[in-house]
């Protein structure tokens, strides 16, 4: 089988499996998996920048939150329909990532990490500062009546699951296309050896900027859908912790792999779900996982599989 065929079978099979699970899973895990799929989209957006371009952002929560508030605030205060609100969430993330990209890409390495961290921290504080509209840490509920996309009530668990799956499938397809296209190969080249890529005549800044915008917009789209599907927007999604999560998921699942973010998000979600039943200090496990991953498994789960068994994995 050619690599393209294998990839088609694998990813098509993954979507089919998720679809099947939507009909057979018990309610609790059904709800969890819907969440994980949207969070995986967030991580897939993050992965475009970190995994494929080699730029480590510590501030992606600002894009997730831009999508979430771009959606939520327009519903809450401007009476937008769900479709228009989702679009405004995506646009908000697109605009923010463009501005952040133009500024932050003047730096590299550690400075880039800190600049993105600082911008995200600013974003979080802005959410708090405009607490009159955002209701700060407490957040606000998006009314059931507003949560209807094209006539489909997404507050219904079955519809919600299918919407999450559709979003996941579309993003998976976009990212597969992206990383197999010449543009994606240049991103990988920048990750591997930026100087060499420049001296092959590629405009590094432009490629990185597009990567930041694609990454931020996908992450923001996940934020907009997360808010709409689960009916809530709150400042906790803008905290540093929510910038660390996609890094953790991607490291765990495998940076620079298409399916890694889903695997990482799923694994970590259940780890935290189980441990938070035992202790309120569940972030301890996130911390331990981060340290162990940087020490022993830089490739992540899917990365290790690719290295050992399946070098064709995109």
């Amino acid at each position: 089988m050619s690599d393209i065929r294998k990839s088609l079978v694998l990813h098509g099979g993954l979507i089919a499996l998720l679809l099947l699970l939507g009909f057979v899973l018990p309610a609790y895990h059904h709800g969890n998996l819907a969440r994980v799929m949207v969070l995986a989209v967030y991580a897939m957006g993050y992965n475009v920048l970190f995994g494929y371009t080699g730029l480590l952002s510590l501030g992606h929560a600002m894009f997730f939150a831009a999508g979430m508030y771009g959606m939520g605030l327009t519903i809450q205060h401007l009476g937008f329909s769900a479709e228009a609100a989702l679009l405004s969430g995506v646009v908000a993330a697109f605009l923010l990532s463009t501005v952040v990209g133009l500024l932050a890409l003047r730096t590299t390495g550690v400075a880039f990490m800190i600049v993105t961290l600082m911008f995200a921290q600013t974003g979080y504080l802005v959410v708090l500062y405009f607490g009159e509209w955002t209701r700060g840490d407490e957040g606000f509920v998006i009314q059931k009546a507003s949560r209807v996309i094209a006539g489909i009530d997404v507050s219904d668990p079955a519809n919600r699951y299918l919407t999450a799956l559709a979003l996941f499938a579309v993003c998976l397809w976009i990212i597969l296309k992206l990383v197999q296209a010449p543009f994606g190969k240049v991103l990988i080249a920048i990750r591997e050896n930026e100087d060499r890529a420049r001296m092959l005549g590629y405009d590094i800044f432009r490629h990185k900027l597009v990567a930041v915008i694609v990454s931020g917009t996908i992450s923001g789209t996940a934020g907009a859908f997360y808010g709409l599907l689960f009916g809530y927007a709150g400042a906790s999604f803008a905290t540093v912790q929510y910038s660390i999560f996609p890094l953790l998921w991607v490291l765990l699942g495998g940076a620079g792999t298409v399916t890694g973010p889903l695997v990482g998000a799923l694994f970590m979600f259940y780890l935290i779900d189980i441990t938070s039943g035992l202790t309120s200090a569940y972030m301890l496990f996130a911390g331990v996982a981060l340290v162990l991953l940087t020490l022993f498994a830089r490739q992540g789960l899917v990365g290790e599989i690719r290295r050992r068994f399946a070098p064709w994995l995109p």
């Binding site: 202790t279 972030m283 981060l290 340290v291």
Partner: peptide
């Protein structure tokens, strides 16, 4: 390595914080 160290110290941050919480 500067970048790995940041990721690892984020992990250490959570470990210390959460152990104190416990």
């Amino acid at each position: 390595d500067p970048e790995s160290t940041i990721v690892a110290t984020i992990g250490i941050l959570y470990i210390i914080q959460q152990v104190v919480l416990m």
